[in-house]
């Protein structure tokens, strides 16, 4: 019997890295991270794509601070998302 959700695991991870994110932001970010992971977007993830994912999650979680090395890595190859970014939804 499953007693755990991928969203819980994702939320625990985001809580560690997004200290200023509100609770509902963490919930939103965790749902995105869980969905992208289950859909296979984590497979073969490299530095620049992971940086884009980090920034997308920070936006979804309403986290204000993004480390400089993440921003720098995300600018290496712009627009290489295989997932649908939260800003593109709705």
């Amino acid at each position: 019997m499953q007693t755990r959700s991928v969203v819980e695991i994702a939320r625990a991870a985001l809580r560690e890295i997004f200290p200023t994110a509100p609770e509902d932001g963490l919930d939103e970010g965790a749902r995105h991270l869980a969905r992208w992971g289950v859909e296979g977007h984590g497979t073969g993830l490299g530095s620049s794509a992971a940086a884009l994912m980090y920034m997308d999650l920070a936006g979804a979680a309403q986290e204000r601070h993004v480390p400089d090395d993440v921003i720098a890595a995300g600018e290496v190859r712009a627009g290489t998302r295989t997932w649908r970014a939260p800003s593109q939804l709705g």
């Binding site: 695991i9 994702a10 992971g37 289950v38 977007h41 984590g42 994912m53």
Partner: peptide, 8 residues
Amino acid sequence: SVARAVMW
């Protein structure tokens, strides 16, 4: 896939 995304 989930683990790699989370660990990244």
